[in-house]
Design a protein around this nucleic acid. Structure first.
Lengths: 352, 352
DNA sequence: TCACACTGGTGCAACGTTTTACTAATTCAT
DNA sequence: ATGAATTAGTAAAACGTTGCACCAGTGTGA
C-alpha cells in the first residue's frame, strides 16, 4: 500500500501538501497543485492509513455500540438506526455483543478505548455503572440507551430511554381497563434498570386499582443461562406454561419484551389457551414481527429511530466537546401503546 | 493515558523490556524483572495503544463482518456465532450493515482495510465480486458466507454455504410429496446468488415432477426499497396477498427466507386463508421465531453455528498464511428440512 | 590469561500521519 | 527602491509501539 510520501513524490509536492489536500485545507493552494495531488492519489489508489492518523491525532470517527445481543431483533433494529444516524454525522459504528455480562462489557469498553474510540453507547441498562467508572475517568464518554443516567452522572454522560415506569403503568392500565384482575408478569431476571422500572410501573397501576400483584405472579427465568436475551422467546414459553398450570391461572400476561411475549403465544397454545379469548398478552418494544404475529401483538412501542437519533447526537456533542455545562443529560421519550389483537376483555376471570 | 516509556521508567527498565513482557517474550528474563514491569503496569493502569501497535506491526486481531442487515434475526444470529468463534481464536469482530448495496459494501471494505483489518466475511451473496477485486489485490482476504466462491477464486479466498440448489429441491419435493401442484415462490429481487440457487433447485424439482413453475407464480418485490432484508416480513405479506388474489391461487408457497414466510402468514390471514389447511408455507433459515410462530414454520435449516465455525477458521488460516496451496476453498453444508406445522397435504388444489 | 558463548537486557530506527513553525517568492504601499 | 504583507508550500518533530542489532557482564574451557 502506497503512503503519503509516495503520493507526494508522484505529485511533485511535499507530504504536508498531500495531507492538506486530504483534510480539505485547500484554501491557500493553487487549484493546479490540488489537481496534481488528486491525480496522484487516484493513480496510486491511495487511501490514508487510519492507524497512523489516529496515533497522531488521537481521534477516531467511530463510536462503539454495546448491546445485549444482536440475536434479538430489537437490538438489531437499534444497531441499524444508530448506524444510520452516526453515518449521517460522519461516524462509523462498531457493534459488540456483551450478553449483559459486566466482565465482557468492561473488556469490550477497554478494547474500544484502547483503539482510540472515545464514545460508546451502552444498551444493557445495568443497575450500576461502577464497572465502567475507571474507563469514564480515563476519557471514555458513555451514553446509556434504555436507562436514565440518574445517580451515575459522573460516569454516564447522557442517556435516552422510555419512561419505563410510565410504560409499565400504561401496559397494566390497558389490561385493567379490559377488566383483568389476575395479571402476571413474565420476565428474565430483574437485574436491569429498565425491567425494574417497568415492574414498578405495573405495581403502581395495579395498586391504584386496588389489585394485588403477588410474588408468585411474577415469573423470572433465565438466571442460569445468562440474562436470557437470546432465549427470550424460549423463556417466555416456559414461563407462561408454568403460570397457566396454576390452580388460579392469570387472565392476562405482561411480558417484559416482545420476544418473551411471542414465546408466551407458543406456551399458551401448548396448553390449549387461546389468545386473546382465554388470555391477553402485552409486550414491550414493538419489533417488526409483533405486527405479523397471530394475533398481532398489543405492545408498548419504543420509538427506536427517534431514540437513536437523540442519543447519537448527544454523544457526538460530548465527544466533540460541544456540550455546554448543564446541558440536558437525559432524554425521556414517551411510550406509546399499540393496541392490536392479543388483548381483549376478560372472559375466564370469573370462572376461577 | 500512560505509555510504555512511563511504565519503563517506573519499573526501572527500558521500553523494549516492557514491550517484551507485554508480548510474552519473557524466556530470557529474570522473573524479578518481569514482576517489576507487571507491577508498574498495574500501578499505572497501563494498556497498550492499539493504533501505535498496529501502525508498527501492520497487524490487527480483528475481522470484519459485512451483513445485509442485522435487523433480520438470521443475520443477528450469524453475527453472534461469528463473534463467538472469532473470540475463541483471539479475534474481535467488527459488524457492518451494508444493505446489499455494492457501493456501501465497497466503502466499508475499504475502511476496514485502511484500518489494518485484512480479513472480512461477506454475507451478501452478490452475483459478482468484481467490486471487491481491487481490495483483494491489495491484500484483503475475503470470505463468503452463503455463497460459493466458484468463478471468483482469485477474489474470494474461501466460502461456506448451503448447497442452495439442493435446499431448493428439498423444499419443493416436500410440497410435491404432499400433493401440491400449484406452488408459488415469494422473494425479493433475485439479485443474489443464494436466492437464484434456491430458485433453480425449486425449478429442477418441479421439472422432474412434471410440474410447471410459470413466471407469474414467482413473486419478486422490493426492488425500489432496497433488497428487502429489512422489509422481508412486509414484502412477504404483500406478495402473498397478490398471489392469493389470482383466479387460480397457489396451494403452497416457498418463501425465500423465514422473514418472508412469517410475513406470508399474515398475508394469508388477511385474506382468510388458513395455514396449513388452505395454504402450505415453507421457509429457509430456521430463525428462532419460526418455532414459535403459529403454526410453527416448516423450513430448511441453515446450521449457523457450524457454518460460522467453518468460515471463521478458514479465514483465519488464510490471514495467518497457514493455508496450504490447494486447500479446500469452499465448504458446502447440508440443508436440513425441519417439518413443522405450516405444511400439510393439499386440500383446495382440486377446487381450482 | 584469552577467546568464546551465554545471559539479560538496552538503543534506536522505523511505521504513516498531522501540524507547527518556518521560508521563498511574489505583490503591494509608500 | 524598500520594507511589509500575502501566498503557496515545506521541513521536521512528534504520536506509542516493535524488533533488530547491539552490548555489558559473567562463566567456561584451553
Amino acid at each position: 500500500m502506497a503512503g503519503i510520501h509516495e503520493v507526494a513524490r508522484i505529485a511533485g509536492v511535499s507530504a504536508s501538501t498531500v495531507s492538506n489536500v486530504i483534510n480539505g485545507r485547500d484554501e491557500k493552494m493553487r487549484p493546479e497543485t490540488k489537481r496534481r495531488v488528486l491525480d496522484a492519489i487516484t493513480q496510486l489508489n491511495y487511501s490514508p492509513n487510519i492507524a497512523a492518523r489516529q496515533l497522531k491525532s488521537g481521534q477516531t470517527s467511530t463510536i462503539g455500540l454495546i448491546v445485549p445481543s444482536v440475536a434479538n431483533p430489537f437490538w438489531g433494529s437499534v444497531a441499524h438506526h444508530v448506524e444510520r444516524v452516526a453515518l449521517q454525522h460522519g461516524y462509523k459504528v462498531l457493534i459488540c455483543n456483551a450478553e449483559r455480562d459486566p466482565v465482557v462489557e468492561t473488556r469490550y469498553a477497554e478494547t474500544l478505548l484502547a483503539s482510540g474510540i472515545t464514545g460508546i453507547i451502552l444498551g444493557s441498562s445495568p443497575l450500576s455503572f461502577e464497572h465502567l467508572r475507571d474507563l469514564a475517568d480515563n476519557g471514555l464518554h458513555i451514553a446509556a440507551f434504555d436507562r436514565r443516567n440518574h445517580g451515575a452522572e459522573n460516569v454516564v454522560a447522557c442517556s435516552v430511554s422510555l419512561d419505563q415506569e410510565l410504560a409499565g403503568m400504561i401496559a397494566a392500565q390497558h389490561l385493567i381497563g379490559l377488566g383483568h384482575k389476575r395479571i402476571a408478569v413474565v420476565s428474565g431476571p430483574f437485574k436491569t434498570n429498565s425491567r425494574l422500572g417497568r415492574l414498578n410501573g405495573i405495581r403502581a397501576a395495579m395498586g391504584r386499582a386496588k389489585l394485588e400483584l403477588p410474588d408468585d405472579m411474577i415469573w423470572q427465568g433465565g438466571d442460569v443461562i445468562g440474562f436470557g436475551d437470546n432465549e427470550g422467546a424460549e423463556l417466555g414459553r416456559i414461563g407462561i406454561r408454568e403460570l397457566l398450570s396454576r390452580d388460579y391461572p392469570p387472565t392476562a400476561i405482561i411480558a417484559v419484551n416482545d420476544m418473551y411475549a411471542l414465546g408466551a403465544y407458543a406456551g399458551a397454545r401448548d396448553l390449549g389457551f387461546r389468545v386473546p379469548e382465554d388470555l391477553s398478552i402485552v409486550g414491550f418494544d414493538d419489533i417488526v414481527l409483533s405486527e405479523i404475529a397471530q394475533p398481532a401483538l398489543t405492545t408498548i412501542r419504543q420509538p427506536v429511530p427517534a431514540m437513536a437519533d437523540a442519543i447519537v447526537r448527544a454523544l457526538i456533542r460530548r465527544m466533540e466537546g460541544e456540550a455546554v455545562e448543564g446541558e440536558q443529560a437525559h432524554i425521556d421519550v414517551a411510550p406509546q401503546l399499540i393496541v392490536r389483537g392479543s388483548t381483549a376483555s376478560v372472559h375466564r376471570a370469573d370462572r376461577a
